[in-house]
Amino acid sequence: MIFSLILGFLLLIIGIYGMLTQKNLIKIVIGFSIVDTGTHIIIVSIGYLRGKTAPIIDSSVDIKNAVNAVVDPIPSALVLTAIVIGLAVTALMLSFIIKLYQKNRSLSVDDYQELKW
C-alpha cells in the first residue's frame, strides 16, 4: 500500500525532527522510537503484495499454488527481530539517561557539553 509507505516516511521525518529539536533526553529517545516504528512500517509495506495473504500455509492457502498466494516473508522476518532489538536498545538508552540524571541531576541535553565541539 502506497499510503502505509507514505505514513512510514512521515513517521521517520517526524521522529528525526523530534530528535533534532528537543532538548529533553527522554523526548530524544521517544523520537528514536518513532523513527524505529516508521522504518518497520516502510519495510513491511515494501513486502506487501496486493490481495495476498500471510505467509502461513494452513488450510486457507492452496499448498500447490502457495507461491502465488502469499506476501513476501523476508521483510516480515526482518521486522520481527528488529522490534525486539529496538525494545532492548531503547531500554539501554533509558538506563544511560537514568545514570546521567543520577550524576548531574539534569535531563537537558544542554547540560552535557563534554563531547561538544
Binding site: F9, L49, R50, P55, I57, I63, A66, V67
Partner: peptide, 22 residues
C-alpha cells in the same frame, strides 16, 4: 516514493523460501 512500483508476485529468493519451507 514516486518511482516505487509494487511487485505483483514474489521475487526469486522469496519463492525459493516459500517452496523450500513447504
Amino acid at each position: 516514493l514516486k518511482d516505487f512500483d509494487f511487485h505483483q508476485e514474489l521475487g526469486d529468493l522469496s519463492s525459493q523460501y516459500v517452496e523450500g519451507s513447504i
